[in-house]
């Protein structure tokens, strides 16, 4: 197994995340993917917003930006425009990316800018005390929904697909080695790519919804996840409480920084 230490700011350890939180599993998966591609630390800029998952940028020894709530993709867009040769990776959560930063998320996908978003979906606002997030399933409990959440939830991957992302995949921390492959493909893909990772929040979600600790939540994830292929043969009703995992979108579309640079060349040419 990879020696993760070369990518870590070890002086910041132990991690701040709760016992049983899946965020560290995703972090390891990201490091394995980056190591496999063989990128140097200087070639990567990792950008995060606010939330539990966004603390990740403090632990890794890349160029890192820990930005304001919901604006990780906005900052990342700036970095990518200034340095198109850099691999820009956004680390964000379900609330950060689809509530506070919802518009940035949709429009980055629409522009198809070459940014890889690793989206930690734990179905709740963990850090701030377990409030309902846009992905909290209908009927489940949160600190702001003590009798059950009456709202429908977002399909984050479907949103990215509809808005125009080049690559969309969904994985779980239970299948962490498969997750490596999705993250690797997302980083290699030219265009906006999203990997939605289902990860447990035992403190704010598992306990309140009587699922249990991190171990129980990961087992629960395993039971509720179905592959894309299997899901295609299931009815909508059967898929109601399921997590569909796999590569959902992989397509070629014009990329924004390419288009922008072509535009500059064309305008320069016409002026000379």
């Amino acid at each position: 197994m990879l020696d993760y230490n070369k990518y870590l700011r070890q002086q910041k350890f132990p991690l701040i995340w709760c016992a049983g939180c899946g965020d560290g599993i995703v972090l390891k998966s990201m490091l394995r993917a980056i190591d496999k591609i063989g990128l140097s630390k200087d070639e990567i800029c990792m950008v995060s917003g606010i939330g539990c998952s966004s603390r990740l940028t403090g632990y890794v020894d890349f160029n890192t930006l820990h930005t304001t709530h919901g604006r990780a993709i906005a900052f990342a867009t700036g970095v990518k425009m200034a340095k198109p040769e850099m691999h820009v990776i956004v680390v964000t959560g379900d609330g950060d990316a689809t509530a506070i930063g919802g518009n940035h998320y949709i429009h980055a996908a629409r522009r198809n800018i070459d940014i890889s978003v690793i989206l930690f979906n734990n179905n709740i606002y963990g850090m701030t005390g377990g409030q309902v997030s846009p992905t909290t399933p209908i009927g489940s409990r949160a600190s702001t929904a003590p009798f059950g959440n009456p709202e429908n939830s977002f399909n984050i991957s479907g949103l990215a697909e509809a808005a125009g992302a080049s690559f969309v995949a969904r994985g779980t921390v239970h299948d962490a080695l498969i997750l490596d492959k999705y993250i690797e493909k997302a980083i290699r893909k030219k265009g906006f790519s999203v990997v939605e990772v289902m990860t447990p929040c035992p403190t704010a979600y598992g306990r309140r919804n009587r699922i249990g600790d991190g171990v129980a939540m990961i087992k629960d994830l395993k039971e509720h996840s179905v592959s894309v292929r299997k899901a295609s043969k299931m009815s909508e009703e059967e898929l109601n409480d399921k997590v569909v995992t796999g590569i959902l979108v992989d397509r070629e579309r014009p990329e924004y920084t390419d288009n922008y640079n072509k535009l500059i060349e064309r305008v320069k040419g016409s002026n000379s």
């Binding site: 197994m1 870590l8 350890f13 965020d23 599993i25 972090l27 990961i218």
Partner: peptide, 15 residues
């Protein structure tokens, strides 16, 4: 098989 290492969220076990 190192599955303990893969799933350890805290980088606390190595094989």
């Amino acid at each position: 098989c190192q599955l303990c290492d893969v799933r350890c969220p805290d980088f606390a076990i190595t094989v």
